[in-house]
Design a protein around this nucleic acid. Sequence first.
DNA 1: ATGTAC
Length: 473
Amino acid sequence: MKNKRINGNDLIALGYKENHAMGVALKINKKRLGLTKEEMLQKFKDVLETPESFLVDSTFEPLANVLLNIEKIDDELITLNDKPNEYTVYGAENIEEGAKDQMNVAMTLPVTVAGALMPDAHQGYGLPIGGVLATKNAIIPYGVGVDIGCRMALSVFDLPATYLDLEHHKLKKILIDNTKFGAGHSFLKHERSDHAVLDNSLFETNAFIRELKDKAWTQLGTSGGGNHFVEFGVMEFKEKDEVLNIEKGSYLALLTHSGSRGMGATIADHYTKLAKELCKLPFKAQNLAYLDLDSEAGHEYWLAMNLAGDYASACHEMIHVKIKSALGAELLAKVENHHNFAWKEQFNGEEVIVHRKGATPASKDVMGIIPGSMATPGFLVRGKGEETSINSASHGAGRLMSRTKAIKSLSKSDLSSLLADNGVTLIGAGMDEAPMAYKDIHTVMAAQKDLVDIVATFLPKIVRMADDGSRED
DNA sequence: ATGTAC
């Protein structure tokens, strides 16, 4: 099938280069101008040949302007290093080239100190998902990602795993009654709860952040969409864990995956745009625009990011508190970790900013959670403090196919059989979240044996995710 | 990821 939309390769074929002119051209290309692909190609060809005759054209003037000034624009860009710093790729054989290409660009930034690519990596905006990047006093909004503070939280209860069979109906109802899914969805006034995070003084950082408070309140304790979930499952400890003080055995556990909802997304969008204005990088690196931590914008982003992280944590806490109370159970252990965030850490004797965009912190003895998919195990892990991975591990299995490909190619009956075979009850979710759309978690875990030890496994049994494209509550 | 946007 012929692609009807012009892409970067079409522009290269016309003689465009991978620079800011192409960026502007692609932006114009997104507008619906009522022209056929052929007519658009001709326009782009004409503008490239005689930009001066388009300086009064309402649509193509910005492109003409960039083309006429491209040398000056290029001169004023921040220079990337010629060669990327070396970095380690874990599970390289199962990582798409696009993710490695993006990491290579990140490793040429003048602020980059070190990097690593986790075995679940795939292409994202700017830094790939599964990318870890240590920088010197600089923060990259797209190095954290759109869902700031996206994280995992695990509660292990003092109930045996058999509770899942015995009280299946009750548990399913608890999930439905105490969770809220879907992009844009929030709690009604009478459903809302308060949490100390709403009194966090970071909301007073500036007017922009202050205005996010109302939305944050309405969405507190909600889960959102995409790959986010709230699920009950079997937590299996094959031997006693001394640190958690949990005896060998199988327990009922609650696992949640979600982030900072609309609030974090708004912060990410705002500061990414600001970074792009303040930090002019060559075209291929523009989504890696960074802010100096000592600058006003950099400092503000750092505070806003930390607030979004606290907020995401509060959202998980609300869910776990409500569900624990509905269960009437006691907590044996609670483990949680961000996997989209940036931290100030020591690396090779100096303080660096470690961006983990879809990566689990794995410093020595630090516990983390690496989920599989809705029908494959997740893992409670303990970091080994491997410097080569910048004290990090994967944040999951990683996508094998894109959402669109999964929806097009995977069969619903195959998913049903897989769920049935594994004794999993699924509430909501689209085919893009089917386990077949993900890499094999065991291969991913094998690729990071040097990074984490497995403490216990989590088998999902009752899984709730956002409804498939529906707006229903 | 988010209920958005040249």
